[in-house]
């Protein structure tokens, strides 16, 4: 990478880290939403755009991640930030456990299967008294922490989730696995014939996506302070992730970045229109799929090939 590029990135990162001293609480909260939703969309895009795995029930990991954090922190009085790694591990273990039945399914069956998994988990949590059942759980360990530190701390966690997930995905796609993924996505049979372990590749992808989503969910609910089954296991999370990925460009690393900016821009400007806002959002997604299936990023690169992350591969 050019040193000027590195410098620009460092400056940007510096500004983002310093945000709690520059911006107010409202900005920080908005950025927490931006970073966590970005990570979730990135994970969905990783599965769909690079692995060819369409998961309609990705929101199950949000609920699992958030509940892991809330349960451990509230029940044992532990610092919520220290429980974030535990939330990642628990979500990944959950994903590993259900990888077995899930990967016996394919295509549309897999998509619906993940949705069913999310719904079953939601109902199970709804009926678990030790998780607060339908009432959910508060994050009472936040009580002793000052307002500034709490807001800044959650913001930094969200920043780490956003930047970290991009880093992990970038690293993953540049390596051997990235190449294997592309071959699996484009033609499973050919990939298997060329010596790619298809199942292993898919499961790794599934685990990474689960871990990122679980962590993002945990951080998102630190902001909300109360987790409930109906909200955390809500399809709305996955719907937003799909919207962002589709709008930005499926199967590109830049797509979710642009998608999330457009999504929040639309939300901040038009969400006061109520149901009309959602109708227009849906129409935009449909139009994008019809007119520019590659999303906003494909429009930007139509004239001039851009590859800021250096992960595209050219046959020569």
């Amino acid at each position: 990478m050019k040193s000027s590029k590195i410098l620009a990135m460092l400056v940007l990162l510096g500004v983002l880290v310093a945000l709690p001293w520059i911006g107010g609480y409202a900005t920080q909260r908005l950025m927490v939403e931006v970073f966590t939703l970005y990570a979730i969309a990135l994970a969905w895009n990783l599965l769909a755009g690079y692995g060819g795995i369409v998961a309609v029930g990705q929101h199950v990991f949000i609920g699992i991640g958030a509940y892991s954090l809330f349960f451990l922190s509230t029940s044992f009085g532990l610092n919520p930030w220290l429980m974030l790694p535990a939330a990642v591990v628990i979500t990944a273990l959950f994903a590993l456990l259900f990888a077995l039945p899930m990967f016996r399914l394919r295509g549309a069956y897999f998509a619906v299967g993940t949705w069913v998994l999310a719904e079953i988990t939601r109902i199970a949590v709804l009926n678990s008294d030790w998780l607060g059942a339908g009432a959910g759980m508060p994050l009472s360990t936040m009580m002793g922490i000052t307002r500034w530190l709490r807001n800044a701390g959650i913001y930094w966690a969200a920043l780490a989730v956003g930047v970290g997930s991009l880093g992990v995905v970038w690293w993953l796609l540049r390596g051997r696995l990235g190449l294997a993924l592309l071959s699996v996505r484009d033609n499973e049979a050919a990939a298997a014939a060329s010596g790619v372990n298809v199942l292993r590749t898919k499961v790794i992808l599934w685990l990474v996506a689960a871990a990122i989503t679980g962590l993002a969910g945990a951080v998102a609910y630190m902001n909300t302070l109360q987790v409930t089954p109906s909200a955390s296991f809500s399809l709305n999370w996955t719907a937003a992730a799909i919207f962002i990925a589709v709008l930005g460009g499926i199967g590109t690393l830049e797509g979710p970045l642009i998608g999330v900016l457009v999504y929040f821009l639309l939300r901040e400007m038009f969400s006061s229109y109520g149901s009309w806002y959602f109708i227009v959002l849906g129409c935009i997604a449909i139009l994008t799929m019809l007119l520019a299936p590659g999303g906003a990023w494909s429009l930007l690169t139509r004239r001039r090939p851009l590859d800021p992350f250096g992960i595209r591969r050219m046959l020569s």
Partner: peptide, 16 residues
């Protein structure tokens, strides 16, 4: 009628 939205609306009223 959503707990998540109530949280966010409250935070917005408080912070913004």
């Amino acid at each position: 009628s959503s707990t998540d939205r109530a949280s966010n609306q409250a935070a917005d009223l408080i912070n913004s």
